[in-house]
Each structure stands twice: as structure tokens, then as C-alpha cells.
Design a binder for these strands. Structure first.
Length: 285
DNA sequence: ACTCGTGTTAGCTG
DNA sequence: TCAGCTAACACGAG
């Protein structure tokens, strides 16, 4: 799951529970998740530092890091991407009991980011842990990612992303939609055009705006573009508020036999912009 | 067994 | 050179 709303939830979790904790060790040995870094490279760069700020643009997160010890020179930026199935789990500091760390009691609560829906992973399940920051206080920040399409990397390129979908202005949106022949859904999914719209949010916004996902961007009238801009921002904001991209009005109807929640027409299914797409053939024109 | 997929990107094509 | 498209990635879920 993650689209922008789930990533924002993960960012907020890091902000709430992951900042200012000294990094004592790092498990960066998953060569898929940490590509193109080699095992030990991220560990070497981060041990002794702490995360200081958690940022997000679209579906990409990145954290600033502190200097080591008393050094004021900041460390590298830690980029985090949840891919298609990633989650962030942050566990609290452990309180050392009189007989040592073995009988610690947790202080505070485990904080999660990413898709909030329940899943099958058993408590204590670690096989999907792809990257871990072990804090000096005994807690940790873990990136879980069954599908291994997430990415952890130092100093990620953020400037290649388009404006964030939550805050994109209508002027920026017009520029993005002004050129080319791509289907409008494909353009919405292009992270260098607009950052943060994934497959579900794209279907939801196009349905809200009553625009056929196949329409070439150049064929959109100015009123279509302004309507779509509003629909994108509203759909993303509502999904952030409600807890995920799956909360959209049309999303639960994206299945064989599913009908348009407004007019009852059976939704059509196809591939647009390389992704599975559902739309109302009567209203989306 | 087999298909699908809420993301990204290298590589191909016109 | 560039926009657009496809396959591949990796692996769980139905």
C-alpha cells in the first residue's frame, strides 16, 4: 500500500517517535532494500548520529541527521521509500531494570507508519524487517517490506520529483497538464510531474472529476484541468485525514461487477498508464 | 498452480 | 533528445 497518505502517516510516526535518539547500530544488510549501497555503508554513515527532521514529498521520505558527538556538522540525509508494501515500526526506549537490560519494561508505545489496516504478520515477526536503526536507548526504527520494493538510501535525489500532490497549486497543475500526449491518468502517476498520486488516488480523483482516464492531457479543456486539480487535492487530503488511499469513494467498487457509486453503471476495467484502471463509462468522459 | 498488484525504473521505440 | 510504453523487479494474497 503506500501512496501519499500512508507515507505521510509514516513520516508523522518518525517525527513523533524517531527523532533525537542516538543511533547505536544499523542493519543495512538487505542488498535489495539498500541498493545501490553495499552492506555496512549506511551503517558506517549513521552510527553515532540521530534523526533530526522527517521530511516528505510525494511518496519519498527523507530524514536529516545530526553530527556525531559534539560536532555541529550535519550527517548525510537518510532517504526512505516504502515501495508497494513497506511500513515503518518504531519501538520505544527500554527501561533498564535492576537486573540489567534483560527485564526491561517498555516505556511509551510502539508507533507505526504506513498502511494502518490490520495484516497477518504475527507479533514479533521479523522476517520482513529489511532495514533497522537500533537506538542507544534500546528501541528501534524498522522498515518492514514483504515485497522488497522499498528503498533506503543516503542523500536521495528529491529535486526530480514534481510538486507534492497535497499542496500543488492550480498554476503548477496547469503547467504539468499543458504538454504531451500521455493519457491523463499516466500523467497523474508520473512522479516527476506530480509527486504522491498512486494508482488508487488517480482512479479516485478522475472519478471525482468525471474525467475519462484515457483522455490525452492536451485534450483537456481548462475547466477540466481546474476541476481535476481540485479533485486531486481533495482526494489526497481526504485520504490523509481518513487514513489511507483505500478510503476513497470509488475504491471499494474497483472489482468485477463493481458499480459507479453515483449512477449505478457498471465500472469498466482496463490498463491505462501501465496500471489497472477502473472507471465509469457513463459519467467519466 | 496461476494471476494480480496502492511503486519505480532500465531499456526500447518512434 | 524526449515522451511514452513495457518488462522486470520480489513476493504475498486470492
Amino acid at each position: 500500500m503506500p501512496e501519499l497518505p500512508e507515507v505521510e502517516r509514516a513520516r508523522a510516526a518518525i517525527e513523533a517517535a524517531g527523532l533525537g535518539r542516538r543511533i547505536a547500530d544499523v542493519d543495512d544488510t538487505d542488498t535489495y532494500e539498500c541498493r545501490p549501497h553495499t552492506p555496512g555503508e549506511i551503517r558506517q554513515a549513521l552510527v553515532g548520529r540521530a534523526l533530526t527532521v522527517a521530511h516528505r514529498r510525494g511518496k519519498t521520505m527523507w530524514c536529516d541527521t545530526s553530527g556525531v558527538g559534539r560536532s555541529r556538522t550535519p550527517g548525510p540525509v537518510l532517504g526512505l521509500h516504502l515501495g508497494m508494501a513497506g511500513r515503518i515500526v518504531i519501538s520505544p526506549a527500554r527501561v533498564r531494570g535492576p537486573s540489567g537490560p534483560a527485564d526491561e519494561a517498555a516505556s511509551g508505545e510502539t508507533v507505526e507508519g504506513g498502511d494502518p489496516r490490520p495484516r497477518r504478520a504475527l507479533p514479533g515477526e521479523t522476517r520482513w524487517n529489511r532495514f533497522t536503526l537500533f537506538f542507544a536507548d534500546g528501541g528501534s526504527l524498522v522498515l518492514l517490506d514483504p515485497r522488497r520494493l522499498g528503498r533506503v538510501r543516503l542523500d536521495p535525489a528529491v529535486d526530480v520529483l514534481g510538486p507534492d500532490a497535497l499542496t500543488v497549486t492550480v498554476a503548477q497543475f496547469r503547467v504539468v497538464m499543458a504538454r504531451g500526449t500521455a493519457p491523463v491518468k499516466g500523467r497523474l502517476l508520473d512522479q516527476t510531474a506530480i509527486a504522491g498520486v498512486g494508482n488508487l488516488l488517480a482512479d479516485e480523483a478522475l472519478w471525482q472529476a468525471r474525467i475519462d482516464p484515457h483522455r490525452p492531457v492536451q485534450s483537456l479543456a481548462p475547466t477540466d484541468v481546474t476541476r481535476l486539480h481540485r479533485a486531486v487535492r481533495r482526494a489526497v487530503a481526504a485520504a490523509v485525514r481518513l487514513g489511507g488511499a483505500h478510503t476513497g469513494d470509488v475504491i471499494s467498487h474497483r472489482r468485477p461487477g463493481g458499480r459507479c457509486p453515483r449512477c449505478g453503471t457498471e465500472l469498466l476495467h482496463g490498463t491505462v498508464g501501465g496500471r489497472s484502471t477502473w472507471w465509469c463509462p457513463l459519467e467519466q468522459v
